[in-house]
Write a protein that binds this DNA or RNA. Structure first.
Length: 423
RNA sequence: GGAGAAGUGGCCGAGUGGUCGAAGGCGAUUGACUCGAAAUCAAUUGAGCGGCUUUGCUGCUCCGUGGGUUCAAAUCCCACCUUCUCCGCCA
């Protein structure tokens, strides 16, 4: 959510960044409502001041045993007008809030302006895609041949886009989770959290999933509970409605959770294998930082995610998303993409964003600056550190051998209890 | 799920219709005292929105949340949420 006052004073900026995002949101009705509300507010506040004064007079008159019925009558009339105006203000507020929650975040000045993913800018590459002496297979072929990936059973138990992992496949998933959690907690200074996997509508609104993206989420029928699409939601909301001290910042949190996404609107894409699932595991990093340090923290966060892939020796590249490709709540996003030999392409495995104060304003998380002063909104950052299922895919495909077996990267061997290959 | 109790400022805690945004205490900050510290004393110490003669003054709102009654609500009424205790159920 953006600051309404800022929108009011920077109309042109808002219009131009909405255009850069290909967003057709019209701010005119919003500004009109804002104007009307402020006019009514002045009116009702004046009336209330008069009523407060009158009520005090009634009190003191009664204390002296005098008759106050005339003032009471006047105050009753004022009260009725106040009620009408406040009712209208309430309606405007609700509408204003709805509109504000639908305005996307303002992109940072360093973000490339562009229409879509074709305008994303590659920042760096790491590693060289391996030359195979044979035709590298896709992970679904490797996994099914080894008996560790079962797509049929996933579909039978739930529906398509669910997978059953078996044996060393299930263990590899678990190994990746533990490896990443250990890396981030022991080397990068994150505090491990185990959050709820279901959260309230308010929490979903805090990070921006609601109200706009309800169709992408799974909701419980009888409760105000939603399955999290990413641990970003509970982690970022950990300090909702709090005022922190600047000395506490930055806060680093990391969590493993399953993630649940309806993937509505992704019907034809990545239908084979487990690249795009309704349920997938992810280790997620979240930071709350001061306004001055958040972009520095974004660089570190992205490096923390890249470190996972360096440790596993998997080729990858990092790109900066253009204004047209960026998510709703982000001011700047780096995607990390791994090399998938079977597709001969880099594919997204992590997304690291600085949301600045966009989420903080929604969930009301502030900090008191050093040396006192008014509380200001924190900057929130999140990044996959990293997607587990896609990492498993990357390991299977990049570490496959001609005979169909898969070599376990050295860093994972301890987590696989000494297993060095799956065959 | 059933029965009961409770939700007040950073914390504890008083307040059952009228100068209550809220006593008192703790904590914090500043000053005095001190060579310094402690102790003591004094002052200050919530948030949001707005106005102004803008380092201060001022209006409105906020006592779990949302409604209602009233000239006036922390205080009365209704609904909901959360916490605690007991029962039931369960891992």
């Amino acid at each position: 959510m953006l600051d309404l006052r800022w929108i009011r004073n920077n109309e042109d900026d808002v219009r131009s960044f909405l255009a850069a995002r290909n967003n057709d949101f019209d701010i005119a009705p919003l500004l009109a409502l804002d104007e009307e509300k402020r006019k009514l507010l002045t009116e009702t506040e004046e009336l209330k001041a008069r009523r407060n004064e009158g009520s005090k007079k009634v009190g003191s008159a009664r204390a002296r045993g005098e008759d106050a019925s005339q003032i009471m009558e006047e105050m009753r009339a004022i009260g009725e007008r106040v009620k009408v105006i406040d009712g209208r203000i309430g309606e405007i507020d609700a509408r204003l809030n709805d509109l504000l929650l639908s305005v996307p975040n303002r992109p940072h000045g360093s973000v490339p302006v562009g229409k879509d993913e074709n305008d994303n800018v590659e920042i760096r590459r790491w590693g060289t895609p391996k030359e195979f002496s044979f035709e590298p297979k896709a992970h679904w072929d490797i996994g099914e041949a080894l008996g560790i990936l079962d797509f049929e059973k996933g579909a039978a138990l739930a529906q398509s886009r669910f997978t059953v992992l078996r044996g060393q496949g299930a263990r590899l998933e678990r190994a990746l989770i533990n490896f990443m959690l250990d890396l981030h907690t022991e080397q990068h200074g994150y505090l491990e959290i185990e959050p709820p996997f279901l959260v309230s509508g308010k929490t979903m609104t805090g990070t921006g999933q609601l109200p706009k993206f309800a169709d992408d989420l799974y909701k419980c029928e009888n409760d105000d509970l939603w399955l999290i699409p990413t641990a970003e939601v509970p982690l970022t909301n950990l300090h909702a409605d709090e005022i922190l001290e600047e000395e506490q910042l930055p806060l680093y949190y990391v969590a493993y959770t399953p993630c649940f996404r309806r993937e509505a609107g992704a019907y034809g894409r990545d239908v084979r294998g487990m690249l795009r699932q309704h349920q997938f595991d992810k280790v997620e990093m979240v930071k709350l930082a001061s306004q001055e340090t958040s972009y520095e923290e974004l660089e570190k966060l992205t490096d923390n995610a890249e470190e996972v892939l360096r440790s596993l020796d998997i080729p990858h590249r990092t790109i900066c998303l253009s204004t047209g490709d960026m998510g709703f709540g982000s001011s700047k996003t780096y995607d990390i993409e791994v090399w998938l030999p079977s597709q001969h392409k880099y594919r997204e495995i992590s997304s690291c964003s600085n949301c600045e104060d966009f989420q903080a304003r929604r969930m009301n998380t502030r900090y008191r600056p050093k040396g006192g002063g008014k509380p200001v909104y924190v900057h929130t950052l999140n990044g996959s550190g990293i997607a587990i299922g896609r990492t498993l895919i990357a390991v299977l495909e990049n570490c496959q051998r001609e005979d169909g077996s898969v070599e376990i990267p050295a860093a994972l061997v301890p987590y696989m209890r000494g297993v060095t290959e799956i065959r």
